[in-house]
Design a protein around this nucleic acid. Structure first.
Ligand code: MN
Ligand code: MN
Ligand code: ZN
Ligand code: ZN
Lengths: 147, 147
DNA sequence: TTACTATATAATAATTATTACTATTTGTCA
DNA sequence: TGACAAATAGTAATAATTATTATATAGTAA
């Protein structure tokens, strides 16, 4: 893993906040720093619990709003739980998905090329892998037009 | 998309139910059939709403339990919302994820090979794609041992 | 067919996660 | 140093997930 440079990341954070007229508050700084040092992809509540060590009065709502503004600033990614609720698929055959980040549609597509993408040897050894999933994200035809 | 053969799928469904000693109830049949014909990766609640047309007295709980038993039978996949809560990642650099289906840890890994996986031309044209995400699923080192 | 029994169900409650609201506080800048 | 837009804490509301329990039913064997 390319070691995440916290100094550099914070510099970009300050820049982006300024660009967007977002105030530099201790809450915002601590939340982003906590996320920068986390390697376990925490939930809002986990971030909240951790930041409370430094800022005992911080509210859940602040962590919630901040996580989302960081996402909008493209400083953090969501790796799970985009759309709120769990979604099911009875098509267990080989196919792949595109997710619209606006309307949360998940659209199937075929790709021989993606079907053939392999699972690296060293990961096979390390984990007991049962599935490989490729997801493209962006804006669907309708949502692209509106924007 | 390889056209999903409902006949064939139902045959396998009956087989698997029998194997596991699961009773063939109208609820189970309707729920699976509804999922088989859906192409939009519905949530539990969406499945519930749709199945109500055929079985007005069905309960949400039944849909919930059935969706999970179908998942365990590997007749349906979860395509979103594995772990319940939303998870964040401040590492926006190129890297990939492994998800443990048991303990829900999401573990980073590097792969030059996966970094180089491209986005098919025709999808680029169709959608406004901003990200490509590869997720491997299975059981982590600890969870593999216990099993 | 009928009676039995383990499993599944409906109805509902409990829990957990997400999002919204508002009075007060604070960072920014003139 | 004010003025004031933006952010925050505290809390409420909503939505999603999971658990509970009394009743009903599918499957089986007499
Ligand atoms: Mn699909
Ligand atoms: Mn990551
Ligand atoms: Zn869309
Ligand atoms: Zn695990």
């Amino acid at each position: 893993m390319k070691k995440l440079n916290v100094e550099e990341a914070m510099k970009i954070f300050y820049q982006k906040c300024e660009e967007r007229g977002l105030k530099i508050t201790p809450q915002r700084v601590f939340i982003y720093q906590e996320l920068l040092q986390a390697t376990d992809h925490p939930s809002i509540d986990e971030i909240y619990q951790r930041v409370k060590d430094s800022l005992p009065n911080i509210s859940f709502d602040t962590v919630y709003r901040t996580a989302f503004s960081l996402t909008e600033m493209k400083l953090v990614d969501i790796v799970e739980g985009h759309s709120g609720s769990r979604r099911f698929d009875a098509n267990t055959g080989p196919h792949h998905h595109f997710r619209c980040l606006k309307c949360h549609k998940i659209i199937d597509f075929d790709s021989d090329y993606y079907d053939k993408v392999i699972i690296p040897e060293e990961l096979q050894r390390k984990f007991n892998i049962v599935a490989k999933k490729i997801m493209l994200e962006g804006f669907c035809e309708e949502c692209s037009q509106i924007e």
